[in-house]
Design a protein around this nucleic acid. Structure first.
Lengths: 157, 157
DNA sequence: TCTATCTTGTTGAATGATCAACTACATACT
DNA sequence: AGTATGTAGTTGATCATTCAACAAGATAGA
């Protein structure tokens, strides 16, 4: 007899979907990461950060806000920004309103690195994912992942 | 004028889908990984390996084959199996037919660890992903990711 | 004001992943 | 047989991520 605490095992079909998802995300992110690295010396998480900065007013975002935007820990963002700073791609600045605050700012050099990297990345997303998928299926993908984000975003436990 | 080498920039809608995908996979895998870690001391990549082993004849798979199955590098699998071996979850064995071959074998203890972890993992997949998605959308997800796997699988360059 | 508590961001150690170099066995060719 | 090339797996160094601990400023309440 079933109780509410029983584990709801996946159907065969659901297992196939889940494995395709796992395998697909792995090979896709690996490939996009590799393309960016070899052509521009940028990892995908780094690229994501630069994209956010490039879109922000003054190309600057506070560390905590940036961490939330890309769903990384604060510590991770600190380390990543430190690396990017060493390469002259971003710089740090203080916040006027909050004495604790630190902003990451995209430099001009960083912006041009990003502009070049964007070609590689967008071409990859297009070729590996979008090009081979039915547009209706892509919309379904968007709906599902949007739902996942809204459900889990920010919830650590 | 456009040429064949121009970068095909994404439409606004495609950008939304892509960002939802990135954010969704990040929070989903983070959450599933955290659940497994806190409850069973296993990472998700480790869990994936144990699942493959549990389904194989004699609960054993050769290192290279295992690496391919989970899309990890050989080196990574070597290190991961070394860790799992230290914990008594897998053990190594030689291949009868190939002098170079090494098999990873799931131990009885490893199997029972996996059995328990499976409850946590499957519940997570169900609650975070499957439960909140339209079944037709899930099928679309499966189609897309299957396509991605087939296109990129094994291609390093 | 004084205190307690929360938030921000950083630090350094420990863990895990990547990369290049290497050993050993297998396969193919002469 | 002998040689060359390919494949399996490991190793250790380097790099990135996580985690716990911390310092400093913000906020709220007595």
């Amino acid at each position: 007899m079933e109780t509410v605490t029983d584990t709801p095992w996946l159907s065969t079909e659901q297992q196939h979907i889940w494995r395709a998802f796992l395998g697909g995300t792995t090979v896709l992110t690996d490939r996009l990461d590799r393309d960016l690295r070899t052509a521009h010396g940028l990892s995908m998480p780094e690229y994501e950060i630069l994209v956010r900065l490039s879109e922000a007013p003054d190309r600057a975002i506070r560390m905590a806000e940036l961490a939330d935007a890309v769903s990384h820990s604060r510590s991770r963002v600190t380390h990543t920004i430190a690396r990017l700073e060493r390469e002259g791609i971003v710089q740090r600045g203080n916040c006027s309103d909050d004495g604790r605050g630190v902003s990451a700012i995209l430099t001009d050099h960083g912006f041009s690195v990003l502009e070049e990297a964007a070609h590689t990345h967008v071409r990859g997303v297009n070729d590996y994912l979008i090009e081979n998928a039915d547009p209706a299926d892509l919309e379904a993908l968007g709906r599902i992942m949007q739902q996942v984000v809204e459900q889990l975003q920010g919830k650590r436990f």
